[in-house]
């Protein structure tokens, strides 16, 4: 197996002095998908936010591409190739789809003209966004907004893509489509960290599964070694 791109060890983090994550460790490899599972409130999102630089780290280490992430400001991590798609489709609602995608490439420090050329990569992946490129992002359907959010992240040419509940609030057919796209992305060598509550859909695409409950890891294993879905589900429910 190749070396992991991101190694998180004994992470403790939270909001202010509210600690939501006590001891979480996981790894993400290039060309593979690591899935972080757990109920709501278990600390998945908080862990991602710490990796993205939005939450302060109280303890533990985060090593990305051989260096510690902690000294890098949140916006600087994007330039290093860490892209984070938050849950809840947080697109810039009043700005057009095209403007949203352009902003996705902000960290490339290119002129607007040059960035415009990059848009085609995204339109190829999500053709619908090309049709809607001049509509305000807020007017799109939930699934399309999710595509805008993922498209924004991909515009930055990331090496590590973190997706927080991309299936949240989407119809099953759309969930399947989103998961298929996510699965296809890893073939280009992208390291993907996926947070999900929908266990089955996530395990389907996963190479590695880590389950956390109340801020602690309860299961961590390559998918090949645990084929018992029931065990994962029980672990998620704190049993």
């Amino acid at each position: 197996m190749t070396d992991p791109l991101l190694t998180v060890e004994h992470l403790a983090t939270g909001y202010g002095d509210l600690r939501a994550v006590w001891d979480v460790s996981f790894q993400v490899w290039p060309g593979r998908i690591t899935v972080l599972l757990g109920r709501n409130g278990s600390g998945k999102t908080t862990s991602l936010r710490a990796v993205a630089g939005l939450n302060p780290v109280h303890g533990g280490t985060m090593t990305y591409d051989g260096r510690s992430l902690e000294s890098v400001a949140a916006h600087g991590r994007v330039a290093l190739g860490v892209s984070y798609v938050q849950e809840g489709k947080r697109v810039f609602r009043t700005q057009t789809v095209r403007e949203n995608l352009l902003l996705g490439g902000y960290s490339l420090k290119l002129r607007r003209r040059a960035l415009e050329n990059e848009l085609d990569r995204i339109y190829e992946l999500f053709p619908i966004l090309h049709d809607k490129r001049d509509d305000p992002a807020g007017s799109l359907s939930g699934g399309q907004q999710q595509m805008v959010a993922i498209g924004q992240a991909l515009m930055a040419k990331p090496r590590l893509l973190m997706l927080d509940e991309p299936s949240g609030g989407l119809a099953p057919s759309v969930v399947a489509e989103v998961m298929a796209r996510v699965s296809a992305l890893k073939d280009s060598g992208l390291a993907i960290l996926l947070v999900e509550q929908a266990v089955e859909a996530a395990v389907d695409v996963a190479d590695h599964v880590t389950v956390i409950d109340i801020g602690k890891v309860v299961v961590s294993s390559p998918v090949g070694e645990i084929d018992d879905l029931e065990r994962i589900k029980d672990a998620c429910m704190g049993r």
Binding site: R39, G143, G168, A171, P172, A198, E200, A201, K233, M237
Partner: peptide, 20 residues
């Protein structure tokens, strides 16, 4: 209850955006 938390495969169709 468990399926609701963990997204069972035969989940009902969720109305778009209803959970936000």
């Amino acid at each position: 209850v468990r399926d609701e938390y963990l997204g069972a495969s035969d989940a009902d169709v969720r109305p778009d955006d209803s959970v936000t």
